[in-house]
Write a protein that binds this DNA or RNA. Structure first.
Length: 192
DNA sequence: AGGATGATATCC
DNA sequence: GATATCATCCTC
């Protein structure tokens, strides 16, 4: 099991990483580490499942209903967090991608524990709970020092599987598009 | 299969 | 100001 000390020797993902095509970013986020430093504690997990949301034209994306106070962060500049509360209980975290105003983002759905996480890290709600992410992180700069992503010290080759996104049946044709990506064989991805 | 639980969008 | 709707998870 990798160690949290390795966080300091790993390369932080630069702003430019996020300022690209959303599907490209989604696929490349697999295998990267999500790190949260707070209260003198460092929590980290390896991203193994994500979903791409392609902006106002994507009927499954929150930004398809236009710019609102809630979706403001998703329309913001890349490399920031779009966090929202769902079903009154769970938080979900997205990484904002593409140029500012594009309204595109990648939902983080599952992690493999790296350090200081329990084993309840699969599923977007449990991911946020394990990482201690909530609405305080709405709009947080992922190039900052508290919540960030990095390229791990060693990044093993992975095989990427693409499938339809989960929980977006209302989105018509968009519900069928294979915009969910996960690491084959991880064992920590959503069933289905 | 259904309930929890609250922010938000979309209606009056 | 009321209400319907959730990019979910847990329990029954």
């Amino acid at each position: 099991m990798p160690d949290c000390r390795k966080v300091d020797e790993a390369a932080r993902l630069p702003r430019g990483f996020y300022n690209r095509d959303t599907v490209t970013v989604a696929r490349e986020l697999l295998g990267k580490w999500l790190v949260h430093r707070a209260d003198g504690r460092c929590r980290a997990g390896r991203i193994v499942e994500v979903e791409a949301y392609l902006g106002p034209g994507d009927l499954a994306a929150h930004t398809s209903r236009g710019r609102t106070k809630r979706t403001e962060a998703m329309f913001g500049p890349p490399g920031h967090a779009y966090v929202y509360l769902i079903y009154g209980i769970h938080h979900c975290m997205n990484v904002v991608t593409g140029p500012e105003d594009s309204g595109t983002a990648v939902l983080l759905r599952a992690l493999e524990p790296v350090c200081n996480l329990g084993d309840n890290t699969h599923g977007p709600g449990r991911l946020c709970k394990a990482m201690g992410i909530d609405l305080r992180h709405y709009g947080a700069d992922l190039c900052g020092d508290e919540l960030f992503l990095l390229r791990p010290p060693s990044e093993p080759a992975i095989e990427i599987v693409s499938r339809p996104r989960i929980g977006v049946d209302y989105a018509g044709e968009w519900a069928k598009k294979p915009l969910r990506f996960y690491v084959r064989g991880s064992g920590f991805v959503s069933k289905k």
